[in-house]
Design a protein around this nucleic acid. Structure first.
Lengths: 163, 163
DNA sequence: CAAGATTGATACGTCAATCTTC
DNA sequence: GAAGATTGACGTATCAATCTTG
């Protein structure tokens, strides 16, 4: 039987941590996602797109940057942006200094939507996640999970836009 | 401006914890899933099904129990089990004491497959997740995330089976 | 009628291939 | 030829509806 710690199996501790990550994510994400969908008509990913755009200078972001921000593949984001544009929550705009580039731009309607949903989102995140933790635990959690993903990439250039 | 801490926005700490959860899960799950798929021909969910069956008494589990264990909806599991049965990695069996019930039963081939993949999985989890953390951090992580999901449900009855 | 399981319709995300611009 | 973005084909997860048994 196993006498070494680097053996053929995950240790109890490793297993617990790994499973906890999968389970916590699935659980929280599912209830919160369902609530947002029901009460806002917005998926978590869609809400995230709106938030990131609202936080960005000019309320616009290049597709690739946005994709990284919302943890989606490029094609995945293309499709999500299609849907959101269809609902009038954002617009596409081309980049004057690099004709290959495309911006997603938050629309007035998108900003309204975001405002009308942020309360719900705030409440949901607190109710299902951060509210169950002390501030110290929140810090630990962020720090530990941060070690799994490497450093955050710095946001970059903005590309000349008229305004 | 915000003078209260329970205000209209998530605090920096809350936001960091929440985003870290989303980002860490997406990142780790994606690389590990891709590796497993490429080197084993098994998705993370499929691997999980095999593991849970292998750990279960009689190497069999009711569909509903299994669904909970692998964090899938019932219909999602039905479909995954269809695929795995198609590859001969498991079998379905009916429950003698409750004709509504169905078991998923790990096959010999499934057990072999599991054995040939567990090394890869072990390495992957360590390389992308637990190996980046100290044992103390692993414990903290499991404890903190555990607070988000409530207590684990106890596994239940086994239903009389011939053998 | 409730629980266990499955199926149909559908939505979403990904890879690989493609198109355009650098 | 590489980067930015999109499209086609495909796999897979989900909800609601259904079927069967308790």
């Amino acid at each position: 039987v196993d006498v070494t710690s680097k053996s053929r199996h995950l240790s109890e501790t490793e297993l617990a941590a790994w499973r906890a990550l999968l389970r916590a994510h699935a659980t929280v994400t599912r209830v919160l996602g369902a609530e947002m969908e029901a009460e806002c008509g917005l998926s978590l990913a869609a809400y995230d797109v709106l938030v990131q755009l609202a936080e960005a200078p000019q309320r616009r972001l290049r597709m690739t940057e946005l994709a990284e921000g919302v943890l989606l593949s490029r094609s995945g984001l293309t499709r999500l942006v299609d849907r959101l544009a269809g609902e009038g929550l954002l617009t596409r705009a081309s980049c004057s200094s690099d004709a290959r580039g495309t911006f997603a731009v938050l629309s007035a309607r998108g900003l309204q939507k975001l405002r009308s949903c942020s309360g719900m989102h705030l409440r949901g995140v607190r109710e299902h996640a951060t509210g169950k933790l002390t501030v110290a635990e929140q810090r630990s959690l962020a720090a530990i999970l941060g070690k799994l993903v490497g450093p955050e990439p710095e946001s970059a250039r903005a590309c000349g836009v008229a305004g």
